[in-house]
Simulated assay, not measured.
Amino acid sequence: MFSFLDMINHYLGYVNLNVKLKNRIYTILGVIGVVYLLYVSVRWIQNGFGLRGSLILLVAIILAYFSVMNVFYYFTNKQAPFDISPKIEKMLGKTLGAGDTATEDGQQSRRQRGNNLLNGANIPANGYFDSKKILPGKVAVNAEQSSNIAQLANQLQQMKLMTPDYGGLGSRELAQQLEKTKKPVYAIGLGVNIPYFELQQDGQQMIVYAGMNQAQKAPMGKITTVGLQPIEDVYDKVKLYLANVILVGGPYMEMGRNEPIEKQAPYMIRVQLAYERDKQAHRVQQNEAPSRQEGFSQSESMTNTPTSPTAPTSRMSRYH
């Protein structure tokens, strides 16, 4: 019987099956194996080998419990009753040398702080701006600026301000999320807020500087568009401010043939820009080229759909 189950398991490895389907097949095979063990244990007891039969029966009951848990997990959307998996996971963690509950809670707290550094709902890094006057910006980077971004990502990780651990998700949870969303899952999630950033103008170029602090700032890229318009068309007509800069990209998971596989991508930055009209330039522009001014107004209406006229902008939701 066990040779038969092992043979099926061996041949399933040659077939490219969906992870969930394969786990369902393994669950069915497990149920068959449990039924066989129950039969063997009963036969041992009937033949006068009570101790051996009882031990086999005990093992069969334990395996039957986990088989039922798998049936709930892979064949239904219901929560399994009397699920002791979290307790077993916690017990095994302590046995294998993991920290105690307080230590684990502290580590989880640090991960949460790292991947939500300076969360906009609590500690705005660059102040609050009117959500009606926030536009997304596109950033172009050269080789040096890309290297600066990678160095900043390393610093954030070394300082425990960023934890690229996929939010603590295991392979099974990642597979479920990938199957559900059909999108890659990044190790740092939706992004990590950068501690310090500023915008500097160099001629017609608007350069983003960022770093761990003002003393360690470095150029990270130049703004190419604001909303739907090139920066060259608007830089002298409005005052621009950096409302937010986040670090995105890095390692990510996507679904392979049978299970999630990790791939590497460069770290990048995404920006939000607040704008304020330059009144003097606005009057000149109205006299000289009103059509271009109308174009910018249309760009604003196309790229802004505020939910509340007075609500501060969200630091993360506008990117996704």
Rank of each mutant, 00 (worst) to 15 (best):
V238Y: 10
P266V: 06
E300T: 14
S131P: 01
G48A: 15
R257Q: 15
K78R: 15
Q177G: 13
P124R: 09
N126P: 00
L161V: 01
Y39P: 02
Y275E: 07
R110Y: 02
I123S: 02
G191D: 10
S291M: 08
T313G: 07
K90T: 14
E276R: 12
L17C: 08
T225N: 15
R277G: 03
Y196D: 05
N193Y: 01
P306M: 03
L174R: 14
N16H: 05
E198S: 04
R52Q: 11
L55R: 11
I207F: 00
F2L: 11
F82I: 14
N119C: 04
N244M: 13
L135K: 02
L63W: 07
A98M: 15
S297T: 12
D6W: 14
T225K: 12
V248H: 00
Y39K: 10
S3W: 06
Q229I: 11
N193R: 08
Y166S: 07
P306T: 07
L38C: 10
D278F: 09
R257P: 01
N287P: 03
N70K: 03
G250W: 14
P260W: 07
V68W: 12
S299W: 05
R292E: 12
G13E: 03
G167W: 05
A143K: 09
L21K: 13
P124I: 01
I223K: 05
V139R: 07
R43F: 10
S146Y: 04
L247V: 03
P312E: 15
G295L: 09
N244Q: 10
F82V: 13
V31W: 07
K237H: 06
Q272V: 01
Y36D: 08
G53P: 06
Y26I: 04
V40D: 13
N258R: 15
V192Y: 06
V245H: 08
D105I: 09
Q158A: 05
I8S: 07
P86W: 11
S146H: 06
V248E: 05
S131K: 02
N18R: 10
F129W: 06
G211M: 06
N122T: 09
V226Y: 09
Q204E: 00
E288Q: 11
N304T: 14
N213A: 12
A243W: 09
N77C: 13
M206S: 05
Y36V: 11
E198R: 05
K94S: 14
V248P: 01
R318S: 03
Q286V: 15
M206V: 00
R283G: 00
E198P: 00
A265C: 06
V208P: 01
L51E: 04
M91N: 12
T313E: 15
L118N: 02
E179S: 15
A125D: 03
A274S: 14
M316L: 10
G167S: 07
A121L: 12
I45E: 05
Q176A: 09
V71I: 15
K94G: 12
A60I: 08
H282G: 08
T303A: 12
I62R: 00
V141Y: 02
V234A: 01
L17N: 06
P230C: 06
L273T: 04
G50P: 03
M253H: 12
D83H: 11
S146G: 14
P164S: 04
G170P: 03
A210V: 10
A98F: 13
M255C: 02
L190S: 10
G137M: 04
K78I: 05
E173V: 00
A150L: 03
V139C: 06
